[in-house]
Simulated scan of single mutants.
Amino acid sequence: MESQNVSTVTEFQLLGFQNLIEWQTYLFAIFLFIYFLTVTGNIVIIVVVSQDQRLHSPMYTFLKHLSFLEIWYTSTIVPLLLANLFSKGQSISFSACMAQLYFFVFFGATECFLLALMAYDRYLAICSPLHYSFLMSPEVCNKLVAISWLMGVGTGFLPSLMISKLDFCGSNQINHFFCDLPPLMQLSCSRIYITEMIIFILSLAVLCICFFLTLVSYVFIVSSILRIPSTSCRKKTFSTCGSHLAVVTIYYGTMISMYVHPNAHLSPEINKIISVFYTVVTPLLNPVIYSLRNKDFKDAVRKSMRRNFGIYGVKVKGALFIR
C-alpha cells in the first residue's frame, strides 16, 4: 500500500489586507486608534466599577467581567493585525496559530454567555424587581460568571483540537488577518466534513441559543416598558435597551453569518470585513454602550476624576509651599 506524501506545515503566512496595499498605512492608524480606545475604555470601566461602592451590583459585575474579557479578546487579534499591516505580511508558527484560534473561540464564546447573562439580569431587574435581590444575589451572580468562563474554556478546546489534527499540505498562506476557522479548514488537504459539521453544531448551540435567550429577555423587557405610565421614563429605558440590542445584534449577526453555515463559504474579502466587526468594532462599542449611556456610571467617573485630580492638586500646592 502506497503512503500519501503529506508535507508538515510548521508555519502559516497571514496575507491580511494585501489587496489594499495603498490603504495599509491608513488602516494601521485606524485600527491602532480603535485598539487604544478599546483597551483604555475597558480599563477605565474596570477601575471605576472596582472603586465605587455604588457600582457593586450584579449588573456592574457582569460589565466588569465583560470589559476584562474585551481587553484580552481584542488583544488576541489586533496586535497581530497591526504587525501584519506594518510589515505587509506576517508569518505565524503552527503552534501560535492554534493558540490564537483557541483563545479567539474561548473569549468569543465567553462573551456570548456574558451578554446573555446581562440581558437576563436586566430582565429580572425590570420584570421581577421584587424578586431581583434573591434571584440575582452576589453569590448567584459570581457563580453565573464563573460558569460562563468555564463554558468558554470548554468551548474553545474542541475546535482548536480538531483543526490541529488536520493535515495541511501545499500552500501555507491564510487569506485572512488571523487564524480563523473557515480559512484554516479551506487550507487543509484532509477530509473536513466531520470537522465542519461538529464546528457548525457547536456554533449553532452557542451563538443561536445565546442570541435567542438574549432576544427573548429583551422582548419581555420591552413589553414591561410599554406598561410604564411615564412617557419620559419609557423613552429613556427604550433608548438604553435599544442601544444594547443594537450592539448585541451586530455581534451575533456577524458571528452567525460566519460560523453557522455548513458547506457554504463566503469569499475571503467578505470574511475579512465581517471579522473586523466582531474582533475590532464590538469590543469598543460594548463598553461605550453599556457604560457611557448609564447615569450612575457617568456620575462615578466624575466622582473619581474629582477625587484623583483634587488629591493631585493638593500635593502640588503643598510641594510649592514647602519650597
Rank of each mutant, 00 (worst) to 15 (best):
T8M: 10
Q13P: 02
E22N: 12
T25V: 11
T25Y: 15
A29N: 15
L32S: 13
L37V: 02
L37H: 08
I46F: 07
I46D: 03
H56W: 01
Y60M: 01
K64D: 09
T74F: 05
T76A: 11
A83H: 09
S93Q: 09
F94P: 02
E111L: 06
L114G: 05
L117R: 10
Y120H: 14
L130W: 13
S137W: 11
N142D: 08
L144F: 10
S148F: 08
W149K: 11
G156R: 01
K165W: 12
F168E: 05
C169D: 11
G170K: 03
Q173L: 10
Q173N: 13
F177Y: 09
L184V: 00
M185N: 05
L187N: 08
L187M: 04
C189S: 14
Y193C: 10
I194C: 05
I194W: 09
I194N: 05
E196G: 05
M197T: 01
I198R: 01
L202N: 00
V206Q: 01
I209R: 15
I209V: 14
F211I: 03
S217V: 03
F220G: 03
V222D: 08
K235S: 12
T237R: 13
S239V: 09
V247T: 12
T254E: 08
M255N: 07
M258E: 06
N263C: 02
N271L: 11
F277T: 05
F277G: 12
Y278F: 06
T279R: 07
Y290A: 04
N294F: 09
K295F: 00
D296S: 07
F297W: 07
R302V: 10
R307S: 15
N308D: 14
G310T: 15
Y312C: 12
